[in-house]
Simulated scan of single mutants.
Amino acid sequence: MKKSFLLVLVALLLVAFTAKAQDAAKTEGSEKKEEVSGLEVHGGVDAYFGYNFNEEAMKTSFTGVHNSFELGMANVILSQKMDKVSFVADLAWGPRADAANGSAGSSTDAIKQLFMTYAATDDLTITAGNFSTFVGYEVIDATGNFNYSTSYMFSNGPFYHTGVKADYAVNDQFGFMVGLFNDTDSKTDANGINHYGCQLSYAPSEELSAYFNVLHGREAIDQKGTQFDLTGTYQASKDLMVGLNATYKMISIDTDGADDQSWMGAALYLNYMVNDGLGLGFRGEYFDDPDGVNLGVASGSNVIDLTFSANMKSGPLTFIPEFRIDMASEDIFVDTDGKPTSTSPTLLFAVVYGF
């Protein structure tokens, strides 16, 4: 299956360079002026205060500190386009960036994304470098999410990939992507390049879009993972946006006598803009961990996350008060007396600035 995937990727690259040669032949002997855009700079900063009523750290990403003012992330994104080619350099610093990048004290820790693209034709684009994952609904940047805290699916799914991918627009509604990557969430590969993924996109209108994603690869010497993921958004009205994410991961273990494992989840997102300065959001998530891969209960457990957020905007500044309660089938949390409990409520106040 891996060889077949490599053949497909090589074929797309050949199509890309053939198309480039054809374009060159058409313009030979005539002057062709390249369109060059100026260097664009944007990004964001964020910070938060979190109070967990159990006085414990949350089990999802980026908000793991209780009763403290905390820095999030500062990131600066540089980009430029020149005719058919472009680049993006996304540099980030702070606790949120460290958690997303898997900080290991190396010179690449500040690189959140670093990739180049080549538009071989109007329909085919090749991207190479380090880029955010195509799997899931939420993103690393606080400026890209309505809720400040993150879901269990996002926290346990991939954050980024390093490698090469090809995006092809079949028509105005359908698109397809294939990619070959290093180990997930790694800028280098310790096991030999063996991760690959694909995405089928469908956007029948400006209001509706859906993406079906698959990611597969060897995660350890005796372990392979395959994740199936579906995301979708629907702009139900001018003010109401509905989002959906559902994911299922299978973990195949080669060790004799060891059972395969899995986890799964689904979430519904509702965002309603009351006016230009105020938005109300809700996330309802169900996360099932039957084999104890992520929640730590060997016999299996699940958790429901209900998150209520407001987005209060003043120009580029967004203030996000948020209340969240996590309710588990088992006692995976600890209360203020140090006793196991099945619920964990949290109050957050975040400030996000995008530019």
Rank of each mutant, 00 (worst) to 15 (best):
V10M: 10
A267L: 06
Q80S: 06
P95L: 08
S299I: 04
L78E: 08
A203H: 00
T184N: 04
H66T: 08
T108I: 11
L180N: 03
T143A: 15
D183S: 08
A236E: 10
D122K: 09
G64N: 10
F131I: 01
S103A: 13
D23L: 09
K81R: 11
Q22M: 15
N52R: 12
A110G: 11
G300H: 03
T18G: 12
Y272W: 05
F355E: 12
H66D: 15
G157C: 06
D331C: 10
K224D: 15
E330S: 09
G94C: 05
M312C: 13
A120W: 03
A16V: 04
A128D: 07
V41K: 14
G284E: 03
Y286S: 07
L9C: 10
K165P: 08
S151R: 00
V41N: 13
P340R: 11
L114W: 07
L6C: 13
K84M: 14
L200C: 05
T247K: 02
A104W: 08
Q235C: 08
F87I: 14
G243P: 01
K33G: 02
N67V: 06
D288Q: 07
A100Y: 12
M312F: 11
F69A: 14
L348V: 06
G64V: 04
G50K: 08
S37Y: 14
T343G: 11
F176H: 03
G243L: 04
P95F: 02
G136H: 00
K3E: 15
K33H: 09
G338M: 00
L13D: 11
M1W: 14
T150R: 12
K3D: 15
D167P: 08
A19D: 10
G144K: 10
P345C: 09
P290N: 03
I304V: 15
M264P: 02
S149V: 03
D260H: 06
T307S: 14
L14W: 09
D98E: 11
N52G: 12
Y148A: 09
G257T: 05
F228W: 08
V8P: 02
K339G: 13
A119F: 02
D46K: 07
M82F: 07
L347Q: 09
R283V: 10
I126W: 01
W93F: 03
A298R: 05
G257R: 04
G225T: 04
F87W: 12
P158T: 03
G43N: 00
E35I: 11
V41A: 12
S299Q: 09
H195G: 10
